[in-house]
């Protein structure tokens, strides 16, 4: 039984790492109704920039601040040269634009900083330690704490602040948002900036785990089932979705895996997501389409 719990807790903690990536998607989706395909490249770009600055012997905090500034500039460029031209276009047009962006950002990241793998040490000891008879990873606990605080801050931001409410208004109906005097350009800049910040945090944690390299941008694929289960519009959903994915893939691997020849944790989340789509297309916490009859 204690083995079961150890797998469960390990899975839950790993799931939080997926949540971190998923939050970036939700931010932009909530503020513009667009699935931002470039989120993965933003994670890669920020992590690569940060590591490269570290390697050029900038201190940790300065590298962090500089990377954040660079992400803000990137957000500004994206707003100015891509989004602004596409106001009020259909979501699929915007989606295609982000698809294009993802290639540009990836290419930019690698031509600036090179394509080799960089190690990243955040200075967190990853030796497992024992709590109530369970072996836990210190790094995973740290990641969970970071994700947890991000969720609380962002939920407050979206529900209590003026900018947050305005952002939700824009996602709901951009034309009406314009009509009531909301400055779309300013808001998009803010939300892409915040998504850049979340991307940076995710990039650092994932980079520390996998090494900073091109495949970091593929981590986002694991965020997809998280989003489908949690719902595209809910930050709480990201966390719950991440926990479900993390726990179920690890448990499935250990307890169902042997019957299927192992390695099922790679595809199990997608099957789970598909089942969710059949039963609850908006996800657990997603906003359902409102249709009046």
């Amino acid at each position: 039984m204690s083995f079961f719990f150890e797998v469960l807790v390990g899975g839950l903690l790993a799931g939080v790492m997926y949540s971190l990536v998923a939050i970036g998607f939700v931010l932009i989706y909530k503020a513009s109704g667009v699935f931002n395909f470039a989120q993965g490249s933003m994670v890669l770009f920020s992590a690569l920039t940060f590591v490269s600055l570290l390697e050029r012997s900038y201190p940790f905090w300065l590298a962090f601040v500089l990377t954040l500034l660079i992400m803000l500039v990137l957000a500004w460029v994206i707003e100015r040269w891509v989004l602004r031209k596409l106001v009020n276009r259909s979501p699929i047009t915007l989606f295609m634009a982000t698809l294009g962006l993802s290639y540009i950002i990836e290419g930019l990241a690698q031509s600036l900083w090179g394509a080799q793998v960089h190690g990243l040490d955040l200075g967190i000891n990853d030796e497992p330690f024992e709590v109530l008879g369970l072996l836990l990873s210190q790094f995973d606990l740290f990641a969970s704490a970071v994700a947890g605080s991000l969720v609380i801050i962002l939920s407050l931001f979206f529900n209590k602040t003026r900018t947050g409410i305005a952002l939700r208004a824009v996602a709901d109906d951009p034309l009406a948002a314009l009509a009531v005097g909301i400055n779309l350009q300013r808001l998009w800049l803010i939300v892409w900036g915040v998504a850049g910040f979340v991307g940076l945090v995710a990039g650092l944690l994932w980079g520390a785990r996998l090494g900073v390299q091109f495949s970091l941008s593929l981590v986002v694929l694991k965020a997809l089932p998280v989003l489908i289960i949690g719902g595209f519009t809910s930050i709480t959903g990201c966390i719950v979705g991440g926990l479900i994915i993390g726990a179920s893939e690890k448990l499935a691997e250990i307890f169902i895996g042997p019957y299927l020849g192992g390695g099922i944790e790679n595809w199990f989340p997608y099957v789970l997501a598909m089942l969710f789509l059949l039963v609850r297309p908006a996800g657990l916490f997603g906003e359902r389409q409102i249709e009046r009859v």
Binding site: I165, A169, D173, L175, A176, A177, V180, I182, E287
Partner: peptide, 26 residues
């Protein structure tokens, strides 16, 4: 100078009060 759009265009997923608030931020 403010326009009320044809077909109302409320922010559907915002509460009535939040809808009103968005108009007041300017």
């Amino acid at each position: 100078l403010v326009q009320v759009l044809e077909g109302r265009h409320c922010f559907q997923h915002l509460s009535v009060e939040e809808n009103l608030l968005t108009g007041g931020y300017i």
